Amino acid sequence: MKTLIFLAKGFETMEFSVFVDVMGWARNDYGYDVSVVTCGFQKQVISTFNIPVMVDKTINEINVDEYDALAIPGGFEEFGFYEEAYNERFLNLIREFNSKGKIIATICVGALPVGKSGILKNRKATTYHLRDAYRQKQLKEFDVNVVNEPIVVDKNIITSYCPETASGVAFRLLEMLTSEEQMKIVKAAMGF
């Protein structure tokens, strides 16, 4: 089972690293067949707070058929997150993952490009809920049924509130890729 983690410019490192760590523990300590591949528009992506990360592949190298899931960490507008998150090439990648019934897991405002892609129309989802819930209002503008809960799963799509929910999303993704029992083993081993 292979997960593509898409890093838009200005992504949050905490929301990115949780997917690497949870899948890494599952693979390394328990031999589960779960791996991650990082992706961005360029080989080096600058995160929120200016941490540079080298990705495995650029968006042009991605064949959706090679992956079982897409993970999208959120990011900060002032670090340019939406410049790439709302790019039509990325929105098309999201649409292709969804059209093939693959899992899409988002943290915080990672739900907004999924909403903008149109695949959440008339579906349940959530996103960042603090500061007057302005990000939830933005998500609602994409005809999404916004649910004010920490983690919302609608069929193949996982969305969540904020950085606090990051580990919960990663464990939910692991469960969907493996099983509830296997996820609980890894979760306990990581001290959750």
Rank of each mutant, 00 (worst) to 15 (best):
F41V: 00
V34R: 04
V114N: 01
F142H: 12
D65G: 08
V147D: 03
E66W: 11
G110Y: 11
C39K: 01
F90T: 00
A85L: 08
M176Y: 09
T165Q: 12
P52D: 13
E61F: 15
F171L: 14
P52A: 12
V144D: 07
T178M: 04
V18F: 07
K184D: 15
T38L: 08
T13E: 13
F97Q: 03
G74P: 07
F97P: 00
Y82I: 00
D56T: 05
D65F: 10
I5C: 01
I94G: 03
N63I: 13
L177C: 11
F6T: 00
F171K: 14
Y82V: 00
F41T: 00
I158R: 05
E149G: 02
P113M: 07
I107N: 12
V114I: 08
R27V: 03
N98T: 05
D21A: 03
N50I: 09
E77S: 15
G118V: 00
K57Y: 12
F41H: 10
V53R: 02
T13K: 10
V153A: 05
G31L: 03
V152K: 06
D143K: 11
T48Q: 10
G74I: 04
N63H: 14
D143Q: 12
T178H: 05
S99Q: 15
F76I: 07
K124G: 09
V146R: 08
Q182S: 14
V36W: 03
V109Q: 01
V114G: 02
V18H: 06
A166Y: 06
T106F: 09
Y32P: 01
K155S: 11
G118R: 00
S35M: 04
G40P: 02
G118S: 07
M1A: 14
A105T: 11
A125Q: 12
G31S: 06
S167P: 07
K187S: 15
V20S: 10
A26K: 03
Y161E: 13
K43F: 04
L7Y: 05
E78T: 08
T165W: 10
K140C: 06
D68T: 08
V153P: 04
Y128H: 14
F76S: 15
P52G: 11
A69T: 00
F171T: 14
V146P: 09
P52H: 13
L70W: 08
Q44T: 15
S47D: 02
N92Y: 05
F11S: 00
